[in-house]
């Protein structure tokens, strides 16, 4: 395995991207889960798909765009989607969750149109839907690195504000924090992480990498920093083990990563039950 990684650039790209995503997706995921925004991550990933499908279609139709990396339009779509969701949530103050099906079905609908317009990018599309060990390019890796730096800078700079906002929205506003702006930035950063993670885990499974490790970590964490730490450990374990098994078994990494995440979650849930009954 190690020698293959040293040998093949595509494996280096996949593993380096995977390791980075294994950190940033659960890191942001902790904030997403405690703020009950898990479904928004799902909606955004489907909007990203619309951008990807659109880009694949354009590059097929216009030869000048043949080399355009679909990730760019994917990022544009998911960031616009995040801003739109915010708009809708404010419009439907008492039905905030309504924004999710609107954006999600919009994303899938537009994707479906592009996919049927363009005939035959099935293999490419499959790798975008479920992730891929072989399809990650140097440029993809570069995009992932840039996004990771942005995400980590954002969390580092706004950690305490994000904590207050997540824990107690009203208190954040009463303290005079620029809650609206930080929230908007947060949504944009979420969109970026989704776009970055998609290459490895695939669009349909992106949100799971943001939520499953967190679901396990909040079962056992006492504090917030601890929850972040455990989530990253679980996420990283799932990504690395998932990529290795996907490589050897020739499976889509999205599938292996999610299944391993669920196994980790089960172990944590059952382990905690046992630990508690032993103590009792």
């Amino acid at each position: 395995m190690i020698s293959s990684i040293l040998h093949y650039e595509f494996l280096q790209n996949a593993f380096l991207s995977g390791i980075i995503i294994g950190i940033i997706a659960p890191l942001l995921g902790v904030f997403i889960v405690v703020r009950r925004l898990s479904l928004i991550a799902d909606a955004l990933s489907h909007v990203t798909l619309a951008g990807i499908a659109g880009s694949l279609y354009l590059s097929q139709t216009f030869t000048g765009l043949a080399l355009l990396n679909p990730l760019y339009l994917g990022i544009v779509a998911s960031v616009s989607g995040s801003v739109l969701i915010e708009r809708l949530r404010r419009l439907y103050k008492h039905y905030e969750e309504l924004a999710i099906p609107i954006i999600m079905s919009g994303g899938i609908g537009i994707s479906a149109i592009f996919i049927s317009l363009a005939k035959g990018f099935s293999t490419d599309l499959f790798s975008y839907l479920f992730g891929s060990v072989s399809a990650v390019s140097r440029q993809d890796l570069f995009i992932v690195v840039v996004i990771a730096l942005l995400v980590i800078a954002f969390i580092y700079l706004f950690y305490k504000e994000l904590f207050v906002l997540s824990f107690d929205d009203e208190y954040a506003k009463a303290s005079g924090l620029p809650a609206k702006w930080i929230h908007l930035l947060f949504m944009i950063v979420t969109a970026l992480v989704i776009a970055a993670s998609m290459r490895i885990v695939g669009i349909l499974l992106v949100s799971s990498l943001m939520t499953l490790p967190v679901a396990a970590s909040i079962r056992i964490a006492k504090g917030f920093k601890q929850a972040i730490l455990y989530a990253i450990i679980f996420g990283e374990t799932a990504v690395i083990a998932g990529l290795v098994s996907a490589f050897y078994l020739d499976l889509a990494p999205g599938g292996t990563i999610v299944v391993i995440s669920i196994l980790i979650l089960l172990v944590v849930i059952v382990g905690k039950k046992i630990a508690m009954s032993v103590r009792a």
């Binding site: 305490k160 207050v164 824990f167 954040a172 924090l177 006492k222 504090g223």
Partner: peptide
């Protein structure tokens, strides 16, 4: 009325009062 499953220690909650 906060989310009682929130993973935060008492200390983290009190420290959040210093944010502003």
């Amino acid at each position: 009325s906060f989310n009682s499953g929130f993973p935060a220690t008492v200390k983290e909650v009190v420290a959040s009062g210093l944010t502003k």
